[in-house]
Structures are given as C-alpha cells and as structure tokens.
Design a protein around this nucleic acid. Structure first.
Lengths: 172, 172
DNA sequence: GTCTTCATGTAAGCCGTTACATGATTAA
DNA sequence: TTAATCATGTAACGGCTTACATGAAGAC
C-alpha cells in the first residue's frame, strides 16, 4: 500500500468554497487548519500544478486592481476525488509524541514533575488560542459549515480540558 | 533550526536498562513505544551504526547458545546526550490529523455521523488494547519505572475515555 | 521437514522542511 | 520611503516507508 500525499485533499477541500489562489489557500490554512493539519509553505504551489495537470483543478488568471493572481477552481473530477477520500477509511498517523517518549524513559521524580509542568503550560497556551478562535467564529455570520467547525473546535477544546485537568491533578 | 532525528533518543532510552541488541530494541519498541512513538523496522540498525561511530554506544558480540548477536551498551557520552535531550524543551509534532481535516470540510450530516462513528470505533479499539497492556503491566514484578509507565498509560487511557465520551454524546 | 522467530541489514523513492529567490503593491 | 503583505515559486537535504534480501536456530 502506497502512502498517498494528502496535501491534495486539503487543497481540494478549500477549493470547495470557491475559486482560490495559492496564496489565499496558504494564508487560509495558516489561520484554520494549522491546528490539526499543517502544510509547509512550499507545498501548495507545486501541488496546484500537479492537480492542474491531473484535471482536478482549473487555473485562471485574475486581476484584482493591478494585482495579478492565479485562482483555481475545483473540477467535477476533483469533486469526485475529494468525495472518494471523505468516504474512504480514515488513516491513522504514525504516532510520534515526544512528551510520552520522554515520560516513558524518565526515572527522576523532579524530571517527571518538570515534564508535566511543561506539558501543562503548552496545553494551556493552545487552549487559550482555541478560545480566541471560538470567539472569532461565533462572531462571524452563519455560513454553511459554521456549526460543524464550532463542533470540531469544541471537540478539540474538550480534549484539551480533560488533559489539563489530568495534569493538574498529577502535579497537585 | 535543523530537524534532529529523534530515533537516537528512543534507542538510547532503551539502552539505559542495559545492553540490548538491535533486534531486541525493535521488538521491545513494537510492544511498548509503538503506541506513542513508532519507528520503522529499518531505522534501528543504521542508527546503531551511527551511534557507534559517534561513541554514544559500544557494540559487543555475544553468543547465546550458538546464536550470535551484537549487543550495544550506552556509554557515558551517550548518557549525557540522553540527559540533555530529556532536559531540553519538548518539541511539538507537526499536527496531521486526518479525522479533523475531514471534519473541517464535511457538510453532509450523514457523513459527519459516519466520521464520528468511525472515530469512535477506532478509539474504543485502542482503549481495549491499552486495557490489556495495563493488565499485563500490573502483573509484572516491580521495576524502577513501573509506576511512571502505569501513570503514562493511564494518562493515555483517560484522554481516550474523554474522547469516547464526547463522541458518544455527539452520536447520541 | 517446514514454519516461525531470531537476527541484520540495503536500496529506491517519496515526502517534507528549510532556506533561498524574486518582485509588485499598499499602508504608514 | 520603508515595512508589511501579496504573490509565486525552486533547490537541497534529510527523513521515513516499503520492499527486498539473507540466513541460522529452534519449535512442532
């Protein structure tokens, strides 16, 4: 079984909302999917070329004022591929949790404490960020996916909260 | 900032418990760290060579009955490097959660339901596995890290349980 | 005798990150 | 006029996975 590059689905997913340029995809992801799906800066443009060659997206040159940009629309074929991915079994990422790796090997009590403390700080920071995003999202006028996105966000927050609580109890 | 290969720390961590062969490291990881730190089969041996060249581990040929194997011990320099890693700030993995990526783009109610259902099944499966590991661990005679490892395991279980509960409530 | 486990690797190829490169437009 | 943002990429390097390879010892 081959590993299939999933960057394409992230891009196609963004394009479902309408024609978008590479730069817009990049900045949009930087404000939304980063928290659960991070793409490196340089992956978007090459992938758009590939998708164009494959007929999954359609490029078009557009001028906004004097600025030129390439916007891409998703094609029927692209929609089909996206849908097929959605329907397919969701793969698991290879687990790589450095915090747990350290915890597994640690012996010193002091060190355990430090690890928990460090983890707690980080989780609380992320929770703060999520809260801000939640407020921003709540303030936005309704759009088709608002409810699901809030749900997904609160799912993430609920998990963070239970982790934070657990860590607090351990640190005591 | 360079990405530093962390396979080395996983290996050094295993060696802290005593001299171990590549094969033993591999199978040990397959029974323990896989759940939070997965190494591909082929990474162990080359890394052991690298660590040998660097003087972090010391190889020795040992015969068990007629079977020959190379066991590796951690050196003082290796211990220092391991300790330095433990003390250093824990990096965050790049987030890559395909489940959340799908959830972010999904619009169809039926599809959302299917995603939750699929996720729930998977999380329950993992929880089952953890429970078995817990039982096995509890049955083992005390060793220096038993308490921490149980703690880490239960931390993972607690998180799984809150996720399972959340999903159940959503599916209703 | 055959299958499983022990035991140790190599090679090809994709993936992903970092750093590098370039230039236009707009806001302060 | 200077900085930030818009806009689009390329190249090098390292990491990781998959598949391939080999062979001995012990269990059944």
């Amino acid at each position: 079984m081959k590993i299939i590059n999933k960057t394409r689905y992230a891009i196609l997913g963004v394009l479902l909302a309408g024609p978008t340029s590479g730069y817009e995809i990049k900045s949009l992801m930087g404000r939304s999917t980063v928290y659960f799906w991070r793409e490196s800066d340089s992956t978007i443009y090459p992938m758009l070329k590939v998708l164009t060659r494959e007929g999954k997206v359609l490029p078009e040159t557009v001028y906004v004022g004097k600025k030129k940009k390439e916007v891409f629309s998703i094609t029927e074929s692209g929609r089909r591929e996206f849908k097929a991915w959605l329907d397919s079994p969701t793969g698991s990422e290879t687990p790589r949790n450095e915090f747990l790796l350290k915890l597994f090997f640690v012996t010193d009590r002091q060190e355990i404490f430090r690890l928990f403390r460090e983890r707690l700080d980080k989780m609380e920071g992320i929770h703060e960020e999520y809260k801000k995003i939640e407020e921003r999202l709540e303030g936005i006028a309704d759009f088709s996916q608002k409810a699901v996105r809030l749900k997904a966000l609160r799912y993430g927050m609920a998990l963070l909260e239970s982790e934070i609580q657990w860590l607090n109890e351990e640190i005591r």
